[in-house]
Design a protein around this nucleic acid. Structure first.
Lengths: 232, 232
DNA sequence: ATCTTAATTTCGGCA
DNA sequence: TGCCGAAGTTAAGAT
């Protein structure tokens, strides 16, 4: 990875057109050919960037640029699309190169997929006597997170979110509308399950006859290791 | 901005739990207190990060870490939330500090607002004889991108997206429901216009009687410069 | 301050 | 490979 701190201006043309006036910035040239342009502020998103794979070339400044004090022009272009980034370099304050090698990558824990897995394994959390039909039940408009049957034999569609907001209720509503057209499983009722449900989402769900279920991730995780369950 | 290239391992605990095994990486400490951890690959998103404002402190490694060869531990915590990042440093290969100063910021051009402007100017793209009523037509639940009348005199509500996905159809559906309660303009039909429309969104739109219109940004942009239009 | 919507979204999973 | 949905989404604009 090559790190350059330089006074530069940038022009991007691709999915949109953008320009960065002259200022001191960090230019980060990754081993995969990508480039990121960072400033002192702003969260992790760079001011400008080019995704790999891309071509990098150095050009002599034309007269117009020389008069402005440009000492070099960098051209970075996307190989697959027409995106182009032009960087005008005025002065370089740092220029170092280090090989980082391959990264083993991030190990994550505690995302939506986990919640789904846990609830499928502990389906009785939606009500005693409930039985799992299947996870990721496919419909023409997308997969329903969990399809189950309750103690009375009624089909239940469950939408799981980490944070329950209005669009999750909308999503479940669409599924229910579709599923209820299928005579084989209708009538289907809905459960909106999340670690946290926003009041607005709760209100909308109730208004549509959808039950809400707050999931306790920690408790579910512990339960999944409950030795009793091995003999259940 | 401080740039450190170091052999390190990272543990994040916050909205999720994540771990990065030991490897050589770039640690970027911005002036606003944020930190980014980048590897040689991957697009602009860092492997791990902490958003400003945050507290930074250096800790002596405990025995368990010393045995692993840790020479220092960095603790970065979010001020507002409970998020914490622990970085174990094994070896430092670069450590430089440069002041970048304030950045003048990015100037953009060519996003969704542009599409709306172009379609309003070329409203006949939705059908010959169509006429613009107005852009950003206000309703209690938000502005409809474009309201128009077709050749038959029927009111048309248009939702514009760069990429048409399901939530855009939902949005238009809500507007149509509301607009159709207004006797002065009802009945209102809907058009979902985008540069690209996802199959599922297309399906849902058709199911709800909403037409779809693919917008050719380049063609529309060229048309808007058509010299004939100056004399039309 | 809070909520809504766009993003050069990026990223991972599955058909 | 393409499509779909989640993300520690982030970020910008409106209420």
């Amino acid at each position: 990875m090559r790190l350059v701190i330089a006074d530069c201006s940038v022009d991007y043309a691709g999915r949109l057109t953008a320009h960065l006036p002259r200022a001191r910035r960090l230019l980060m040239l990754k081993g995969d050919g990508s480039i990121l342009i960072h400033s002192e502020t702003g969260s992790y998103k760079p001011l400008n960037w080019m995704n790999p794979p891309c071509n990098f070339s150095i050009h002599e400044p034309e007269e117009e640029h020389l008069n402005d004090g440009v000492i070099s022009r960098w051209r970075v272009s996307q190989v697959k699309t027409a995106d182009i980034l032009w960087i005008q370099i005025y002065e370089i304050h740092l220029d170092v190169d280090h090989e980082l090698g391959k990264d083993p990558g991030l190990i994550k824990d505690g995302v939506e997929a986990h919640l789904q897995e846990l609830l499928a394994a502990q389906i009785e959390l939606i009500g005693e006597g409930a039985q799992l039909i299947r996870r990721e039940y496919m419909t023409p408009i997308g997969p329903v997170d969990i399809l189950a049957k309750d103690a009375t034999g009624q089909t239940v569609a469950i939408e799981i979110k980490r944070r329950g907001e209005i669009d999750g209720v909308e999503q479940l509503t669409r599924y229910l509308e579709l599923l209820n057209r299928d005579a084989a499983i209708a009538p289907v009722r809905g459960i909106f399950a999340a670690q946290e449900i926003k009041p607005q989402a709760m209100t909308l769900a109730k208004d549509r006859g959808i039950s809400c279920l707050i999931l306790d991730y920690e408790a579910m995780r512990l339960d999944s290791f409950d030795p009793d369950s091995l003999f259940g």
